[in-house]
Simulated assay, not measured.
Amino acid sequence: MIPVWRKSRRSTNQGGACVEVAKLAATIGVRDSKRPNDGHLTLSPEQFAALSQRIKDNILDL
């Protein structure tokens, strides 16, 4: 399966820090949209959901 990487609709193309996500076989891939060939972080669906929630709750210092 070839992963389909996508950016959030909220991301901008004005030099912002953007990530892309893709559903992989049993995990979620996360990578830097500016450097897609540098590899990606692999998270379980539960880890990805927890990370997303922490971002939404403004818990992380981004």
Rank of each mutant, 00 (worst) to 15 (best):
M1A: 08
M1Q: 10
M1V: 01
M1N: 01
M1D: 04
M1W: 03
I2M: 01
P3M: 00
P3W: 01
V4G: 00
V4L: 07
V4Y: 05
W5K: 02
W5P: 03
K7T: 14
K7L: 11
K7C: 10
K7F: 05
K7M: 14
S8D: 11
R9T: 15
R10G: 04
R10S: 09
R10P: 02
R10F: 11
S11Q: 03
S11A: 01
S11P: 01
S11T: 09
T12V: 00
T12P: 02
T12A: 08
T12H: 07
N13A: 15
N13M: 03
N13T: 04
Q14T: 07
Q14I: 00
G16P: 03
G16T: 04
A17L: 12
C18H: 07
C18T: 07
V19P: 02
V19S: 12
V19K: 12
E20N: 14
E20P: 13
E20L: 09
V21H: 01
V21M: 00
V21S: 00
A22C: 08
K23M: 11
K23T: 15
K23C: 06
L24T: 12
L24F: 12
L24E: 10
L24G: 14
A25R: 13
A25C: 13
A25Q: 13
A25M: 09
A26M: 15
A26E: 15
A26Y: 08
T27M: 07
I28P: 00
I28R: 00
G29N: 06
G29R: 06
V30F: 04
V30W: 01
V30Y: 02
R31I: 04
D32T: 06
D32K: 03
S33A: 12
S33Y: 07
S33K: 03
S33H: 05
S33W: 07
K34W: 10
K34L: 14
K34V: 03
R35E: 13
R35Q: 15
N37G: 14
N37W: 00
N37R: 05
D38S: 14
G39Q: 11
G39P: 07
H40G: 08
L41E: 05
L41A: 09
L43R: 02
L43A: 02
S44H: 09
S44R: 03
S44L: 12
P45I: 11
P45A: 09
P45H: 11
E46C: 02
E46G: 11
Q47F: 01
Q47D: 07
Q47G: 11
Q47R: 05
Q47E: 10
Q47Y: 03
Q47N: 11
F48K: 06
F48R: 02
A49K: 10
A49H: 02
A49E: 09
A50F: 07
A50W: 09
L51G: 07
L51T: 04
S52K: 12
S52Y: 04
S52W: 05
S52G: 10
Q53V: 05
R54L: 14
R54K: 15
R54G: 07
R54S: 15
I55D: 00
I55S: 12
I55E: 06
K56C: 06
K56I: 13
K56P: 08
K56T: 08
K56H: 15
D57G: 05
N58M: 01
N58A: 13
I59G: 07
I59M: 15
I59Y: 09
I59C: 09
I59P: 01
D61E: 11
D61Y: 06
D61P: 02
L62Y: 00
L62C: 02
L62G: 05
